[in-house]
Amino acid sequence: MNNNKIGKQLRALRKSKNMSTQELADKVSVSQSYISKFENGRSKPDIEMLENILKALDTNLSSFFASELEEMPDDLILLINTVKTLSPEARRKLNEFLEIVRE
């Protein structure tokens, strides 16, 4: 996975958590510009830093590098990560709503 894909995916995950770059930076004890460099593809985090960032975003390395996510558009990654935070009842209601929209 290249720097741009890593950055794009990190940004989508962060946004799905409604977190600013500053909030993420604070959680992993780095500067906001450091996070921004990753998201903009100007730098690639080492594995330890990536693990820390992913932990702050409530995910892990295996999920992050899953081949399905690499091919997904940002809005779909955002949707999946948002759905993961819903209660079972909220997911059921969302599915009902989506069925209506699809019709």
Results as ranks from 00 to 15, higher is better:
Arg11Met: 12
Lys93Ala: 05
Phe97Tyr: 14
Ser33Cys: 07
Glu103Ser: 15
Phe38Pro: 04
Glu89Gln: 07
Thr85His: 05
Glu39Tyr: 14
Asp46Val: 09
Lys15Gln: 12
Gln9Ala: 01
Phe38Leu: 01
Glu68Arg: 15
Ala66Ile: 07
Glu68Met: 09
Lys5Leu: 11
Lys5Asp: 11
Met49Val: 15
Asn18Phe: 02
Leu50Arg: 06
Asp74Trp: 10
Ser31His: 15
Lys17Gly: 01
Ala56Trp: 02
Met72His: 05
Glu68Cys: 09
Tyr34Pro: 04
Pro88Tyr: 05
Gly7Ala: 03
Ser20Lys: 09
Glu103Asn: 14
Met1Ala: 12
Asn52His: 01
Ser43Asp: 15
Ser33Phe: 06
Ile6Glu: 03
Lys15Gly: 06
Leu94Asn: 02
Gly41Gln: 13
Leu13Cys: 06
Ile77Asn: 01
Asn3Phe: 00
Gln22Gly: 08
Thr82Phe: 04
Arg11Phe: 06
Ser87Ile: 07
Lys37Gln: 08
Thr59Gly: 09
Gln9Glu: 05
Ala66Gln: 04
Ile6Ser: 02
Leu54Gly: 02
Ser31Ile: 01
Ala66His: 08
Pro45His: 14
Asp26Cys: 10
Glu99Pro: 02
Leu94His: 06
Leu86Met: 13
Lys44Gly: 08
Arg14Val: 10
Glu68Phe: 02
Ser20Glu: 11
Glu70Met: 07
Lys8Thr: 13
Ser62Ile: 04
Glu96Trp: 07
Val30His: 10
Lys84Pro: 00
Met72Asn: 09
Asp74Gln: 12
Glu23Lys: 14
Ile80Ala: 11
Asn52Gln: 06
Ala12Thr: 08
Leu10Trp: 10
Glu39Ala: 10
Ile47Trp: 04
Thr82Arg: 14
Glu99Phe: 11
Met49Arg: 14
Glu51Gln: 06
Tyr34Met: 04
Asn3Met: 05
Leu10Tyr: 07
Glu48Arg: 10
Arg11Ser: 08
Ile77Asp: 04
Ile80Glu: 02
Ser16Phe: 03
Ser31Cys: 07
Asn18Lys: 13
Asp26Lys: 13
Asn2Thr: 13
Val30Lys: 14
Ile53Met: 04
Thr59Lys: 12
Lys44Cys: 03
Arg14Tyr: 08
Glu99Arg: 13
Asn18Met: 13
Glu71His: 12
Thr85Asn: 09
Lys84His: 07
Pro73Asp: 15
Lys8Phe: 12
Ser62Asn: 14
Glu89Ala: 06
